[in-house]
Design a protein around this nucleic acid. Structure first.
Lengths: 140, 140
DNA sequence: TAGCATAGGGATAATTTTATCCCTTATATC
DNA sequence: GATATAAGGGATAAAATTATCCCTATGCTA
């Protein structure tokens, strides 16, 4: 298994949190699970772009970090359901804020990110509904 | 210059925000600048662990993404000061939340992160004061 | 019997991100 | 003359993260 060679910096809250959220799909996974999209196959359908392998790996990390719980149903074909733990739920206001900030500033951000010379292409498939929409939270 | 080969996913706010905050030191840099630690040399001293090169690169990205502004004083040796833009400031509540969440759950997080088999070592130098401490914000 | 669905994981390639090393500029100080 | 300071950046090495490919298991359906 892979072993980190450079020590992880965890000297401030920022870095600790970053470690938990570190992974291309982690925030989106937490978000999906919070919306009751809890089976890997469902998540795979919801999140255009994740591969099964990466999904498995990042879910496992979230589980190891205590953000989600995994329930295995002893049946075939396999059935597994993930759910947020208490500490996982406590991250949701932050995930929502990240999501809303991005959406609110979408026009600006798309411009600056696209202008970035190292960004040659961008993938923009329509976004599935998010929890903050479902629950009608509005922060203007 | 480096060019991305896999298209960037920006189909939801979460990914847009992630792109802006993507970089080992980005949140910490924004935080430092928000606290008036605005010269590269000061930041270098404050943030144990960043190298000058990475500092330069990540500050430049933050600038290209419109989160910070750079003021160059025409003198020698050079003097440069970074400051948050309006949209950069609008990120601060989120940065604070990330920071506070990490600190609040430090004990738990240190445990699960340290137990992680791929994490062999961890660097823990004392953390400099953060803005939310200076401004006495408390979210308990 | 072949193929699908479901979830997981090993091995390795490809990509992206960070780290390391060295060079530039111009002034001040030892 | 050597050295420090301040900021920036090119080239490349190293490390970390993601992607790709293939294999496991078992019951159901065509």
């Amino acid at each position: 298994m892979y072993e980190r060679k450079i020590p992880l910096t965890i000297d401030c809250g920022l870095h600790l949190t970053k470690e938990v959220l570190n992974g291309k799909w982690k925030p989106a996974l937490l978000n999906a699970i919070s919306m009751d999209v809890k089976r890997p196959s469902e998540i795979l359908r919801l999140l255009q772009g994740v591969t099964r392998r990466v999904l498995t790996v990042q879910l496992k990390e979230l589980e190891e970090h205590g953000m989600v719980e995994k329930k295995i149903y002893p049946q075939l074909p396999p059935k597994v359901e993930y759910s947020l733990t208490e500490i996982g739920w406590s991250l949701m206001p932050i995930i929502d804020a990240l999501n809303q900030w991005g959406d609110k500033n979408r026009q600006f951000l798309e411009t600056v990110i696209t202008q970035d010379p190292k960004t040659t292409q961008v993938s923009k498939s329509p976004c599935p509904a998010y929890r903050h929409l479902l629950t009608e939270r509005d922060t203007g």
